[in-house]
């Protein structure tokens, strides 16, 4: 019997703009509320400085990255660490489809920002089973 797969979720948590906070909030919503049994949250900074636990979790599981700006730091750094990014999510792309949800506040998001985070988490959650099914064939180490 094959080992049960889960998805690693890595937000950028950028500190310069509210969009970075949205990435962090979306990751919490996904991992704590929507799909706690199917996901594991991985801290980006741990991954980059070579923490073995973090590296092992992203290399053995498909990864979903959530980035707050077009520089896509989380996606770049996860790929650089040798993991496969199954889905890269850009907060700005989702915001373009939800223009009424303008996030404000880096330390504490406003209500539209929290709503945008929930929308992002719901979108990822909707595609999670597909990611798990695609990677069940043993594409990952």
């Amino acid at each position: 019997m094959s080992e049960r797969r889960i998805v690693s979720v890595i937000p950028c948590s950028g500190i310069g703009k509210a969009f970075g906070t949205v990435s962090r909030e979306a990751a919490y919503e996904l991992c704590e509320n929507l799909r706690p049994a199917d996901t594991t949250l991985v801290a980006l900074s741990k991954l980059v400085v070579g923490d073995q636990d973090a590296q092992s979790r992203v290399r053995t599981n498909p990864a979903v990255t959530i980035d707050g700006c077009k520089l896509m730091c989380a996606s770049k750094l996860v790929k650089h660490s040798g993991a496969t990014v199954a889905r890269e999510v850009s907060v700005l792309d989702v915001f373009r489809r939800h223009k009424d949800l303008k996030p404000e506040g880096i330390a504490e998001l406003n209500d539209p920002g929290k709503e945008l985070a929930r929308a992002i988490a719901a979108e990822i959650s909707g595609g999670l089973d597909e990611i798990l099914a695609e990677t069940a064939g043993g594409q990952h180490a």
């Binding site: 950028c12 950028g14 730091c73 750094l77």
Partner: peptide, 9 residues
Amino acid sequence: TICLPLFLA
């Protein structure tokens, strides 16, 4: 503040 992910990337 310096954005750590950007700094590392």
